[in-house]
């Protein structure tokens, strides 16, 4: 299996007046060709910033300060803006969280699609229009010819997200970064979109990074999972294995807080305490203040280690009990 994207020890910091916000501070993962990586973590853990770092869209006062973003072996962290622009929307596409905000309200859908085609390929307007129409049809928008002439506000939220997905698909990208694209939608539409994206990824060999805080979405969709906490990946591995027997106490807590059919009747366990402020993270493991296993060892920062083949975790006292010796 060839690797589409490999992120190594990525750090993206925001230099604000209040101090340095280490929004991403040690993120590593790989995404293989045609694979789906689920990037999970609670609000503020740095998922979106990771996504923007990959396509080089971190705005000041933020900056990628360290790490490598290897796209087919090419390091995007040091690539020129011009080079990145040719990748964006072309070979790497991104879909945003809030479909109500991603389309420009004063431009017609055809304008916003055709410009995307023309940004990367020299084709006639007519051909660009046909491709846009085909893309709309592909994501399940009825009568795409008419819909092309509409403005975004004439679509529902679900339909708008389909338009955004259609735009992402225009150039058959090798990688799509989907930032919680279904969170703002209701459950049935969520399901439809998930199924369609999965199908598209499988048929076109597109790799996906699916950002979410919803473990059940990841369980059904992803091949690999990377769990983020306070700007760091704390656990990574094959999705089934991680969800069955998580190593990291944070992942354990996260799974425990999700309602499940197998544990019906048992109370849901919330992870105690609050996410620490990124501005003044204490030294050592960031999960320390909330972790039932914490001890003096955790005053130092654990590394992300491969504890079992294909299973990585960043913890001094991982839950290895159930995983065999």
């Amino acid at each position: 299996m060839s690797t589409t994207l490999e992120v190594r020890n990525l750090r993206t910091h925001f230099f604000t007046r209040a101090g340095v916000v280490k929004a991403v501070d040690g993120v590593s993962f790989t995404v293989g060709r045609g694979q789906v990586l689920g990037l999970v973590g609670e609000s503020g853990s740095g998922k979106t910033v990771t996504g923007f770092s990959i396509i080089g869209l971190v705005d000041p006062p933020g900056r990628v300060v360290e790490g490598e973003i290897l796209f087919h072996g090419r390091n995007l962290a040091t690539a020129s803006e011009e080079e990145l622009r040719h990748l964006r929307g072309n070979r790497i596409a991104m879909i945003f969280q809030d479909p109500m905000m991603t389309l420009n309200p004063v431009l017609r859908v055809d304008t916003q699609m055709i410009e995307t085609v023309l940004a990367h390929e020299k084709v006639s307007r007519e051909e660009a229009r046909q491709r846009s129409r085909d893309a709309l049809g592909m994501v399940g928008i009825p009568s795409p010819d008419e819909r092309l002439k509409s403005y975004p506000h004439q679509f529902s939220g679900g339909m708008r997200q389909r338009v955004a997905i259609a735009i992402a698909l225009l150039h058959r990208p090798e990688l799509i970064i989907a930032d919680e694209p279904t969170t703002a939608l209701d459950v049935t539409i969520q399901g439809q979109i998930l199924a369609e994206v999965q199908k598209l990824a499988a048929t076109t060999g597109t790799s996906l990074i699916w950002i979410t805080h919803d473990l059940s979405v990841v369980a059904g969709l992803a091949d690999e999972i990377a769990v983020m906490y306070a700007g760091r990946v704390v656990e990574g591995g094959e999705v089934g294995a991680v969800l069955d027997a998580p190593f990291h106490p944070y992942t354990v807590g996260l799974i425990g807080s999700v309602p499940s059919r197998n544990r019906r009747g048992e109370p849901l366990r919330q992870i105690p305490g609050m996410t620490p402020s990124l501005l003044k993270l204490p030294a050592g493991c960031a999960f320390r203040s909330r972790c039932p296993r914490a001890d003096e060892a955790c005053l130092a920062m654990p590394d992300l280690l491969e504890l079992r083949p294909g299973r990585r975790a960043r913890c001094f006292h991982p839950h290895l009990e159930g995983a065999g010796a």
Partner: peptide, 13 residues
């Protein structure tokens, strides 16, 4: 606004 960021994410000049 998100729509400007999205426009940039599409690779527009």
């Amino acid at each position: 606004m998100d729509y400007v960021k999205f426009a940039r994410a599409k690779g527009l000049s």
